[in-house]
């Protein structure tokens, strides 16, 4: 990335630091208010948004902080989703066990794929991560036991404990909200940790980092694995959210859209991924209400962001360094 896009900015003001958390806190009221006002649809919509934000946060970590432009992230979302399918198909009923397994399995896939792909750089990295995601896609298509191309319906909700299930819209919403908040908190702490600093150093000057004694390859692999595991979590939650999983989740345009949302929000910006997902999904949703031609305004927005706000939407809220 060019220096201009990636240059450091001043720490955010106290208000800017707490505002996102306050908004997340307010969201906790949504299922209550929503039930009163008949906004059930929007409770579901926001839940989906939060799930996508979890995946995007992981991608922002490797792309924005680590400089790894991966175009295969949807593949790990798919691995997470299909892990849930496999467990449910085998008779599992605990949400936590299924989601936990999804995190582990997708993390393992990411570690294996990262071990091969992280030897390459730039466009070659972009293309080889895409290639592996496509392989996962065709693997899913071939799993006729899980519906192949047609996908797999999850007919009974998973158990969350205390007699609650993912079928309880409000409870599931709170669970997703809590998980998302945990992920955001962890990501923003990791960004200012030793690991985060090392990762940004690798993004800015990989050779120098190696020459200063950093195990560059291993650091990248750990970040890539973590991001893959987060994508897997998102995939698992998405499976429960939709009660349905299909290979379409892993199509390359899904990976591209995720990448687009992260860049739109602001690469390597603490709330960039979250903001990008919120704006992109909300706009898509609203535009769909009014017109069947709802892609082109989004396309126009992307072009505008590239030319007018190269640091992304989150960059617009930052004070420039003197």
């Amino acid at each position: 990335m060019s220096d201009g896009v990636m240059s450091r900015t001043l720490p955010a003001s106290a208000a800017a630091r707490w505002l996102p958390w306050a908004l997340l806190g307010l969201l906790a009221l949504l299922p209550v208010v929503g039930a009163e006002m008949g906004l059930d649809y929007y409770v579901g919509f926001v839940r989906r948004m939060l799930i996508v934000m979890i995946a995007a946060t992981g991608l922002n970590f490797i792309l924005g902080y680590g400089g790894m432009a991966a175009l295969g992230h949807a593949g790990f979302i798919g691995v997470g989703a299909y892990t849930v399918v496999a467990l449910v198909d085998a008779g599992a009923s605990s949400a936590w066990a299924a989601w936990g397994a999804a995190v582990l399995v997708s993390g393992a896939f990411a570690a294996l794929i990262g071990a091969v792909t992280l030897r390459t750089r730039g466009v070659y990295f972009l293309m080889i991560t895409l290639a592996f995601a496509q392989m996962l896609y065709y693997l899913a298509v071939s799993l006729s036991a899980y519906g192949g191309d047609d996908g797999y319906g999850l007919y009974s909700p998973l158990e969350l404990g205390f007699g609650r299930t993912t079928g309880d819209a409000a409870v599931f919403f709170w669970v997703v909200l809590a998980l998302a908040a945990l992920v955001f908190a962890f990501a923003s702490r990791a960004a200012v940790s030793r690991f985060g600093h090392a990762l940004m150093g690798i993004r800015d000057n990989e050779t120098r980092m190696e020459a200063m004694g950093y195990p560059v390859y291993r650091l990248k692999l750990v970040a890539f694995t973590g991001a893959g595991a987060l994508a897997g979590l998102a995939g698992a939650l998405l499976a429960s959210h939709n009660n349905f999983v299909s290979p379409a989740t892993m199509h390359w345009t899904e990976s591209a859209t995720l990448l687009v949302m992260v860049v739109l929000g602001g690469l390597g910006r603490r709330w960039g991924a979250v903001l990008g997902v919120a704006v992109w999904l909300a706009l898509s949703e609203v535009l769909k209400l009014y017109t069947e031609y709802w892609h082109w305004p989004l396309g126009l927005m992307l072009i505008a962001v590239v030319f007018v706000a190269p640091r992304g939407l989150a960059g617009l809220f930052e004070r420039r360094k003197a």
Partner: peptide
């Protein structure tokens, strides 16, 4: 940082 402890620490 490279020579004082692990750079894999991601919480503090």
């Amino acid at each position: 940082q490279a020579h004082a402890g692990s750079s894999f620490r991601c919480f503090g």
